[in-house]
């Protein structure tokens, strides 16, 4: 039982700690600026928890603190609470308990914790006992999601842990390979995308890859993401727009093709300041026509333009009773698989 553990206070030189042994680590090595500042200014307030292991000591709790101490006080001994040797499952449980008693785990830490716990505990026990303690919904669904998150690549983990990508996006990109995750992260960084756009883009890439039965990297390549983000003439917003347009074209090729055809045929009315739009997703054979009139002469111009619309290829292809029914658009539109 964790509450029965006896601790002994010791100062241990860094060389006495088995630094390579990260069995109990749930945090990811990263830049802990705030904690580093605190330790630099006031020293280590909370000691590490370690247990005797072989000739040295194995770290149970305090990996972030250890990372910092190695960096800023490499020669100084480390304040530690030493326990008797503990079974691995208890070491991990103790680490998780120590962490959640002082702060909330970020999603990656929670994922790492759950993944490591699964080596010692059954799925049901983790769901019942550990998920609520980590403020995670007590469900099979949440368990599976977090277990999957543990397999994110290192940079994707950093982005997720720091909140630079939302959790919903992390759950999508975990289905990508590590190199594809890198490509995706490069895209969102170059475009300086906000949270909603990141989620939407991650989902779009994943769904399109499933639609075509290819990997996510292939979709990012087909969308020309690499050349878009390296184009110095584009602002981040323009890059975002370009990438979204390219991904949507891949996701809905028939619609994009029909829209392109519609725009091409409607273009001749642009100069008359008549706006023509199809019914949403072309579900009905209807065209919406909008214009303003400023004078009687202007009205006459618009009426003449509408007369031309009657005989136009646009009407022939996109209105009923013309035998067309968007044939042009349909011939262009290829199924997305």
């Amino acid at each position: 039982m964790l509450e029965d553990i006896q601790y002994q206070y010791l100062s241990i030189p860094l060389s006495g700690l088995n630094q390579a042994d990260e069995d109990n680590r749930i945090s990811i090595p990263a830049d802990y600026a705030q904690l580093e500042k605190s330790i630099s200014e006031t020293g280590l307030i909370s000691p590490l928890i370690v247990c005797a292991s072989g000739a040295g000591y194995k770290v149970i709790c305090g990996f972030k603190r250890l990372d910092i101490l190695k960096k800023i006080k490499p020669g100084a001994p480390v304040k530690c609470l030493v326990t008797d040797p503990l079974p691995p499952a208890d070491q991990l449980a103790l680490n998780i308990a120590e962490n959640i008693s002082s702060r909330e785990l970020n999603p990656v830490e929670a994922a790492n914790a759950i993944a490591k716990l699964s080596a010692f505990y059954g799925r049901g026990e983790i769901i019942e006992k550990f998920l609520p303690a980590m403020n995670i919904q007590k469900s099979e669904y949440a368990y599976n999601k977090y277990i999957s998150l543990a397999s994110l690549g290192r940079r994707a983990k950093e982005f997720t842990a720091s909140g630079r990508i939302p959790l919903a996006a992390a759950f999508q990109i975990v289905k990508f390979s590590c190199s594809e995750q890198e490509m995706f992260l490069n895209v969102i960084e170059a475009c300086r995308m906000g949270a909603n756009l990141i989620v939407e883009t991650a989902q779009l890439v994943f769904e399109t890859s499933m639609q075509y039965g290819v990997c996510a990297g292939e979709i990012l390549t087909r969308a020309g993401c690499e050349s878009i983000i390296s184009n110095a003439d584009l602002t981040p917003n323009q890059k975002t727009e370009e990438i979204r347009r390219a991904l949507h074209s891949l996701k809905r090729p028939m619609y994009e093709s029909a829209m392109a055809r519609f725009r091409e045929l409607a273009a001749e009315f642009d100069s008359r300041k008549i706006s023509l739009n199809p019914f949403a997703y072309f579900e009905k054979d209807e065209i919406s026509v909008k214009f303003n009139i400023t004078s009687i002469k202007d009205l006459e111009t618009k009426i003449a333009a509408l007369e031309r619309l009657k005989e136009s290829r646009l009407a022939a292809e996109f209105l009923k009773n013309n035998g067309g029914h968007g044939d042009g658009a349909r011939k262009e539109g290829k199924a997305g698989r």
């Binding site: 769904e207 399109t208 499933m210 639609q211 039965g213 996701k251 809905r252 090729p253 028939m254 619609y255 029909a258 949403a280 997703y281 072309f282 579900e283 968007g326 658009a329 349909r330 539109g333 199924a335 997305g336 698989r337």
Partner: peptide
Amino acid sequence: SRIIYNEFIKGYDKKSRYFRFKREK
């Protein structure tokens, strides 16, 4: 199963359905 990944639109019934010209094909 990949059936939910395709060119879908939101229909009048708020359900996802294939784009009209695809259904037609």
